[in-house]
Design a protein around this nucleic acid. Sequence first.
DNA 1: TAGGCCATCTGGTCCT
DNA 2: AGGACCAGATGGCCTA
Length: 151
Amino acid sequence: MKSCKSSSADSGSESDSKCKPGPESGMKSGSERMESVARRRLAANARERRRMQGLNTAFDRLRKVVPQWGQDKKLSKYETLQMALSYIMALTRILAEAERYSSEREWINLQYDHFHQDNYHTYLGQRSPTESSHYPQKLFAYQHENYQIVN
DNA sequence: TAGGCCATCTGGTCCT
DNA sequence: AGGACCAGATGGCCTA
């Protein structure tokens, strides 16, 4: 789909002869064709804008469900994807453990041990700003590695 | 001021 | 043919 428009990225030198209709060429005048091309381009731009806006609302929805401890700044798109990945892996692991430990009490005790031994008390109590910003990374670091091994 | 992030435009490719 | 998707280019805004 080469257009006749000269673009900043691509000066369509090879298409010049095709794009300039001579006096003998088709039904539509040159200006009509230019108008049609311009109209289609504008429509495509609008569609693309709408598509990207849809993508961004999806990112916003994802940001809302992904943990953001101690983050006053909104996560970037890349960070959102990384955090979502780690979050999913963490939840998956918790579910797998829940299945492995038949009795509910046994599983609850396990979770208690996991969180309370190192991080959990620190997290719930008074934390320094640096600690709080590193907490999610600490919690999810293992899952991320796990994912990379699988894929 | 450099670097990061983002929105938009654009042309190419694939699919219906 | 037209729409969806994608990636590159570009310019604006913000922050360290």
